[in-house]
Design a protein around this nucleic acid. Structure first.
Lengths: 147, 147
DNA sequence: CCAACTAGTCAAGCTCCTTGACCATATAGT
DNA sequence: ACTATATGGTCAAGGAGCTTGACTAGTTGG
């Protein structure tokens, strides 16, 4: 049925929001009450070896000025540190602090807590199908909503 | 694999954003350049018999003041009209104008254009499975992103 | 070794949302 | 009926988070 297709955007958005809401709630419940979901996407990029402000801006799909402001805020709250970049004196390497890592672990726990029962209810084969079908639809890299 | 689960939020968000982006582009291509995706969700609620400002606010998960401002903007642009409510002299019934209906049809066309090739690639059985799996995850009603 | 480019920040402004206050109308309790 | 409370809507002020524009410090290629 053609007109049935029109409920898919709503379904997709609703699922995405529910997921983000619940993970955010789990992070708050673990004591990190001064972070927004958007910070989680920043942490995901900074985990590992860190990133520059410009790289972070690209990942979040915001201007470098906005990314710089976010780093300011996260640094003030103790989640990240600005370090000199080892290979470029203009740049700074933004890395997670201990608190930043702790928050990242809390987010992973919260996400797992939300996703596991749902994933087991689906079963592995449907989960794989879902993954494939979703990736067929999505342009990778852009996470930030624009509406 | 447990840690595989963590890519699902990103996948879901990425798919949702791609969808909204493309539908929005289709709406613009059809000549409606002064509306945002959020307005589409408002139109969806107003289609049919219309709604009050408070009902619209609940649907969009914003305050009634914000909904009132949005109605102001949409009325100024000619997409909606404020009419006296037939059963409550305090309330106003917000309804789509001709232009509002035209924009809604354009959005439906754009959505269909985006979704149809994807849906046919998936096939009906996987589409049904996807729908079911997504609805299992989502809390209905809230569409607006919060991050 | 200089011209063009890139990393980052400062400053100002804008958009969309919020909180708080208020009026008009509706509804319930006595 | 009449008052108390609740509800629909708007006005006003303010704030969070983003943008654009301008600038400095450092890098890179001809």
């Amino acid at each position: 049925m053609p007109s049935d297709l029109l409920d898919l955007p709503v379904l997709l958005l609703s699922a995405a929001r529910t997921l983000v809401d619940r993970i955010d709630a789990g992070v708050r419940a673990r004591g990190f009450t001064d972070v927004r979901p958007a910070h989680g996407f920043a942490f995901a990029r900074l985990a590992g070896t860190g990133a520059t402000v410009v790289q972070l801006a690209e990942h979040l799909d915001i201007t470098k000025q906005a990314a710089s402001q976010m780093v300011d805020e996260l640094a003030k709250k103790g989640y990240v540190e600005r370090r000199p970049h080892p290979a470029d004196a203009r740049a700074r390497l933004i890395v997670l602090s201990d608190r930043g890592w702790a928050c990242t672990r809390a987010a992973d726990e919260a996400a797992d807590e939300v996703l596991r029962p749902w994933a087991t209810a689906l079963g592995p084969e449907r989960l794989a199908a879902l993954r494939q079908d979703l990736s067929r639809l999505s342009t990778p890299g852009r996470v930030r909503p624009i509406w």
